[in-house]
Write a protein that binds this DNA or RNA. Structure first.
Lengths: 250, 250
DNA sequence: AGTTTCGCACATCACTCATGTTCAATCGCG
DNA sequence: CGCGATTGAACATGAGTGATGTGCGAAACT
């Protein structure tokens, strides 16, 4: 997918979200693309659950407090994500077993772990795909139902897979993190998967870009006391450090 | 990947298999490609477990009785596979729950089921990827360890996922099928997964191209009596029909 | 130490994929 | 039931990506 295409999808997503619903013609004149292209874009966004098609236009399905779709987040803040991912990868020792959360930051970690000697269970199909060509990794796929777009695995099968295993390290992403509210996620199912991942690991590393440190999402996952380290791109957060968490600045 | 590249990979695979081991220079003159390209090809094939690199060349890892790698099978016999897949897809009713085996024929089925209203658990990541963009399917991913190249999920996590569920229909591929020897597979782990899939389904459909009907592989999966229907591209096999199996010719 | 092999970096080209246009079919509305 | 708008399929085109080749420094084997 080209950059132009992604930014157009973003533009459409936001315009439709703000207006509630919009017509194809309006979106075409807004983006400068042809109506055919808009229709194809709407089809893509509908498949991701971002919006719902109706004849002549589309209506937004994004609730306030929900997350923008994966494809639109994946190339935002790439620098910070990559630096965070590199710092996280450095904290992993060869031979370890690792459970790797879903999300764009963790996907960057997945790419960096590709040629390492590890046992890895990624919680998102994106990460699975990023690592499935590796000969050096022992890749474990958890069961579950992939959420459209995000491709994060959730549900009883995922929880069962996590409960059956014990990992050296869990690498978790999140949608919000603060000393007061702990680790939070937008999606309830996601939250329980994260919780299970944290429970089944000896050491927990949170990979969190700075924008998440001021945010709190709906679903509570775990208190900061259950984290061993937080890797972020901003300067050390005093509140977190006061709560006894090691904060690593990438 | 271009066709030229795939056929070169095939050529290399066969040449190395027949010779046991071959040098980079020899492969370059054989295929007409540059040595750099040969090295890159060998890297790909090594990642798939087809061969093993050593300085100056590569040695084959393919045992007699083992299977050529997935990437090299996926565009062979496409016509037959697609016709078989279409016939199989026609036998599935909307609303059903289906477990879909690994293999190239089943991957074609996966593509055809993309826009249907079904609950599907594919046993290979290739099929998962083919279906993960669908909004109409309820996709279930089994746990497991993906075999390199094939990306078929196997192991205790896969078996546990299958044991936890009951499906209306199992669509299984295989490496060999005959009235006498039943359904057989090259890989032992694969065989136990297939067996579990068959056990957890009420109805079993085997999707088998004609070349498999004369072959028998190492691992026994199940007798033909456990199959409800066999879909193939050759004329009806009398032996199978005599064994009481419905043979559908696509 | 010498030679071969390797793999990185860059240039080039072929191919694919996104986009736009046209048109027949379809849908919804009056 | 008919009309107009909308849709999506088919094809043409262009941009961009991925595969291939070449040169060179580094590494490995002898």
């Amino acid at each position: 997918m080209f950059n132009r295409a992604v930014s157009r999808l973003k533009q459409i997503t936001e315009a439709v979200r703000d207006a509630g619903s919009l017509g194809v013609a309006e979106l075409a004149s807004l983006t400068g693309a042809s109506e055919m292209t808009i229709r194809r874009d709407l089809e893509v966004l509908a498949a991701q659950g971002v919006l719902e098609r109706f004849r002549g236009g589309a209506r937004s399905l994004l609730l306030r407090g929900s997350e923008p779709p994966f494809a639109l987040r994946s190339d935002e803040n790439t620098d910070a994500k990559r630096r965070i991912a590199a710092a996280v990868a450095d904290m992993i020792t060869d031979g370890e077993s690792v459970v790797l959360d879903s999300g764009t930051t963790c996907l960057e970690v997945a790419r960096l772990l590709h040629d390492r000697r590890l046992t890895v269970m990624p919680l998102s199909l994106h990460a699975v795909n990023a690592m499935s060509s590796s000969a050096s990794l022992t890749l474990l796929v958890p069961g579950g139902r992939p959420r459209p777009g995000e491709l994060a695995l959730t549900g009883p099968l995922t929880l069962a897979s996590l409960e059956a295993l014990r990992f050296d390290t869990a690498i978790v992403g999140c949608c919000g993190l603060s000393a007061g509210h702990g680790l939070t996620a937008f999606d309830l199912e996601d939250a329980s998967v994260k919780r299970a991942a944290i429970t089944s690991a000896r050491r927990v590393i949170a990979a969190v870009d700075a924008s998440k440190l001021t945010r709190t999402a709906l679903a509570f996952v775990a208190p900061v006391s259950s984290l061993d380290a937080v890797v972020t791109d901003a300067a050390g957060d005093e509140e977190l450090e006061a709560a006894g968490v090691t904060v690593v600045t990438a």
